[in-house]
């Protein structure tokens, strides 16, 4: 998986080929329009715009901008943060329709404004059914998160709702093993602490963005600050392992998670990606490689709708070619159970 950073103003040059399908998500963040407004829509045959009906009041203005930008090629897919099955079925149906219409040989995904959960589900679906498609990811950076707030008061979301595994990433949770939670921490330190509080794992490891790898333009070293806040909040853990991830490199994130997974030993591993979408792609990749790993998600109860982010001037383009692993056989599952016993 290669990744390149380009100025948004140069994205047309960087994306010189044509795409049968473009997928993006509407959001209350203005950043969701950064890439769709910058690309050459003549090079796209069909566009799918995810619309989170749970936040419709907040996403509607930007959704309309996306519809306007993509014109008749745009097709809105309803998704719900509260219902991953609804989300998966609607995305799946639209993907199949696009395939039937011959639009899926090459796919461009603007991952910027997806929820972590919707992005993970989409990646899983693509990996299952579109392993031969040429897939390019695009991610528009933010110049700043929690706009205007000083570093001590920055916030992106508050409160957590239900904690669940992400559809398609169930892992293999062995009842007799202890639980090890690997959290990739971003600005959402309260949400992260809430997740730890809710799952009450036996041990935790906190991954935070490596200095200099931030995709934001301001407060580049905020990740470490928020990781420290999570650490302070997790008072019931006397020892917390820490690890760095490169926020601008999914493959690097995958490698770091792989190291942590190998170090963790004989435990159930849960990964909660809560940093940017590039690192979430890295987490998905790590879970694809190790199917015992579960990815979990804590839905936020509220977002900083008014000042979540300020669009930046760059974007990251990544080649998302993955080969689907052969499905695990029943015999492999039985072997695993025997090993456990």
């Amino acid at each position: 998986m290669s990744i390149t950073k380009v100025e948004l103003s140069n994205i047309r040059t960087a994306l010189s080929e044509t795409y049968g399908l473009f997928i993006c998500s509407s959001s209350f963040e203005d950043r969701c329009v950064s890439i769709p407004a910058s690309i050459d829509t003549d090079k796209i045959s069909r566009a799918l715009i995810l619309s989170n009906v749970d936040y419709l009041d907040w996403v509607r203005p930007n959704q309309q901008k996306l519809v306007n930008a993509l014109g008749e090629k745009g097709y809105v897919i309803k998704v719900r943060s509260s219902d991953p099955i609804y989300t998966a079925d609607n995305i799946n149906q639209c993907l199949k329709q696009a395939r039937d219409e011959g639009h899926t040989d090459s796919i461009l995904i603007d991952v910027t404004a997806f929820t972590h959960e919707a992005l993970l589900i989409l990646i899983r679906l693509l990996r299952i059914s579109f392993s031969t498609s040429r897939i390019t990811g695009a991610y528009a950076n933010a110049s700043e998160y929690s706009v205007g707030d000083d570093i001590r008061h920055k916030w992106l979301s508050r409160g957590i709702g239900e904690v669940r595994s992400v559809l398609g990433y169930p892992g293999n949770i062995v009842l007799s093993r202890k639980t090890h939670l690997m959290l990739i921490v971003g600005y959402e330190h309260e949400r992260a602490a809430g997740l730890i509080d809710s799952i009450e794992p036996n041990s935790i490891a906190l991954g935070y963005g490596r200095s200099g790898s931030a995709t934001t333009e301001k407060n580049k070293d905020a990740n470490e600050h928020y990781m420290n806040l999570v650490k302070q909040m997790a008072t019931s853990f006397s020892e917390i392992s820490l690890f760095e991830i490169p926020c601008d490199d999914p493959q690097g994130t995958r490698d770091k998670l792989r190291e942590q997974i190998n170090k963790a030993g004989d435990v159930n591993i849960l990964i909660a990606p809560m940093n940017n979408k590039l690192s979430t792609i890295g987490a998905a990749w790590a879970a694809f490689e190790n199917r015992d790993v579960q990815i979990c998600y804590a839905r936020a109860l509220s977002y900083n709708y008014g000042g979540y982010s300020m669009p930046g001037s760059h974007c990251y383009l990544l080649d998302m070619q993955w080969k689907e692993d052969p499905p695990r056989s029943s015999e492999q599952d039985r072997d695993r159970t025997r090993r456990v016993c």
Partner: peptide
């Protein structure tokens, strides 16, 4: 921290 800035919204039971 826990309440004042929370405007809970986003799912059917919230």
């Amino acid at each position: 921290s826990d309440l004042d800035k929370v405007g809970m919204e986003g799912h059917e039971t919230a």
